[in-house]
Simulated scan of single mutants.
Amino acid sequence: MITESVAGHCEHLAQASNFPAYVYDMDALAQHAGTIRSALSGSPEIFYAAKANPDPEFLRTIAPFVDGFEVASGGELRHVLDAVPGSRIAFGGPGKTVAELRDALERRVERIHVESPHELKRLAELSRSAGGADVMLRVNLAGDRAGAALAMTGPFGMDPELIEACRVILEAAPWLRLRGIHAHLASGLDANAMLRQSEQILAWARPWLSSAGVESPEINLGGGMGVDYVAPECRFDWQTYAQGITKLKRPEETLRIEPGRAMAVYAGWYVTDVLDVKQAHGEWFAVLRGGTMQIRTPVTKGHNHPFQILPGASPEGPAVENVPVTFVGQLCTPKDVFARSVPIDRIAVGDVVAFSMAGAYAWNISHYDFLMHPRPSFHYLPQP
């Protein structure tokens, strides 16, 4: 549901014909991040996954409520440290280059998540003269991923057989300090499914780390907390998760999680206006300014993106009532669809459509230069 401050700002955007626009409610973001922090009460540690939305204002707003940031490229690493200097950083992601690893060492990144024996060998060579490095080995466990929106299989991390090859490398490079295990196995899970997955990770990681001689082990349980675009009011149950993870944690270990989408998604809206309403082969279409090149989420997820229609001050042109309508953008492709065959009470040219849940994996994953339409404006509420 659109917040009062965002709805009020949409009126100003309409008066200025300043569409499309991203409108971010920073108070809502801080409140939600604070709720998560309060529920977890300091354990596990929270590292925000910057890939969800690396907007500098998002990073700075979230920073007081998290213990650090997870980055997945050298570009993200530099970007986050520029926005929030001195932050604790966990550097993950497959295919790290020599330049990225060197940069991570020079910037004294707190933890480097190693994805393969080859990457570990490369890091050993680079870090010997740099005082070593603190590493987490990323494990990719097999198991039931039923109900997951995305299973992180294939090239991510090492299966238990491959990870054994890291023992010899670590023994030959004592300047590499093994701190623990990282595992991000799936995304889109509810609290109970996340807890079952955490149990699976801990059951494997604890004996392996003990056999490797790691004292005070760290276990990064990843992210993947579910977000429901069909029912936005149904949010991840942080209280249930917190209660369960407290029971799982042992006194000598540090647990860590990496929420991204579940922390940032509710604070953003993509707002635009209706350019045309027309019928084709019995189906009604609302043509909106902008398109999915500016908010890639609906196409990526293959869903009807949640929205709210705000009537225009003086609607003009065609209108339609009480029929299913498909919302499309300005791209020259039939795939440019925000929502398909959604029942509406009324929509007219000049109305404003505010797509909610645009605070994560929206603008930052979009191919916004396709067809070279004007880029959206960005607005942060409350305004200075």
Rank of each mutant, 00 (worst) to 15 (best):
T240E: 11
P315N: 10
N304H: 11
P306G: 08
G213W: 04
V320K: 08
D228V: 06
V230T: 13
G312V: 12
V271Q: 07
W238I: 01
P306H: 07
Q308V: 09
T240M: 05
Y270I: 01
F327P: 06
W284D: 11
V230G: 00
T240D: 12
L288R: 10
D336C: 06
V299Y: 11
A231C: 09
I309S: 10
W208H: 14
T297G: 13
S216Y: 07
V271D: 08
R289V: 03
I245R: 00
V265G: 00
V227I: 14
W269S: 13
V328W: 02
Q243I: 01
P232E: 04
G222K: 02
T272C: 05
D228E: 07
A262D: 08
G222F: 04
P232I: 01
A242L: 01
P306Q: 05
F307M: 10
T300H: 14
F285C: 08
G302R: 09
R250L: 11
V299P: 01
M293V: 11
D228L: 03
A313H: 14
T297K: 14
G213E: 02
G244P: 13
Q330G: 07
S210W: 09
I219T: 10
E321K: 14
V265F: 10
G260H: 09
E218P: 00
A212P: 07
K301N: 12
V325A: 09
P259L: 02
K301P: 01
K335L: 12
M225V: 02
I257W: 02
L331K: 02
G329V: 09
Q239Y: 03
P217S: 07
F285A: 04
L331T: 00
S216N: 15
L288V: 11
V230E: 11
V227H: 05
Q279W: 03
W269N: 14
V328R: 14
G290P: 06
P318E: 12
A267G: 02
L255W: 02
V323S: 07
H305F: 15
A280C: 10
V299Q: 15
P311W: 06
C332T: 03
A212S: 13
T292N: 09
Q330W: 03
S210D: 14
C332L: 07
E258P: 00
F327L: 15
T254V: 11
I257S: 04
T292P: 05
E252L: 02
I257G: 05
V271A: 08
W238N: 01
G302I: 08
I219V: 15
R289P: 12
V287A: 07
T254K: 03
W284K: 05
V277F: 07
R235F: 01
T254L: 05
P324D: 10
G244C: 13
I245F: 06
E253I: 03
P298M: 08
V265R: 01
T292Y: 03
I295L: 15
F307N: 01
Q239K: 12
G282W: 10
Y266P: 00
F307L: 12
E218A: 07
I257F: 04
T272I: 05
